[in-house]
């Protein structure tokens, strides 16, 4: 029988893969991908909790929808910034984006 813990393990693994992507990727788009994985892991958690802890409600799904909406906004803005940087300074590597440093 598959229980809540199984889903949580999967979500934790996905979250940590996202963390690894965020920390170790040079390319800004890859970093955004890592962030998407982390958000998806959270969504899986929310829906699993909803399903196993409160099957009479949809509150977890509502949270997930909000997160998806915010993620969509984040990606569009993030990509716009990356494009703009690429166009003006020819940068995609995130460790070269240090113009705001002191």
């Amino acid at each position: 029988m598959i229980g809540l813990s199984h889903y949580l393990f999967v979500a934790a693994a996905l979250f940590c893969i996202g963390v690894y992507g965020v920390l170790t990727k040079k390319n800004a788009i890859a970093v955004v991908m890592g962030i998407e994985f982390m958000l998806n892991a959270v969504n899986i958690n929310l829906i699993a909790f909803n399903h196993f802890m409160a099957p009479n409600h949809v509150i977890g799904q509502l949270f997930a929808i909000f997160i998806i909406g915010v993620a969509a906004a984040e990606v569009s803005l993030g990509l716009a910034i990356i494009l703009s940087l690429y166009r003006q300074r020819h940068l995609v590597a995130i460790d070269e984006m240090d113009i705001l440093k002191w």
Partner: peptide, 9 residues
């Protein structure tokens, strides 16, 4: 969108 981003940069 990310694929587009990859292609544009």
């Amino acid at each position: 969108l990310l694929v587009f981003g990859v292609m544009l940069t």
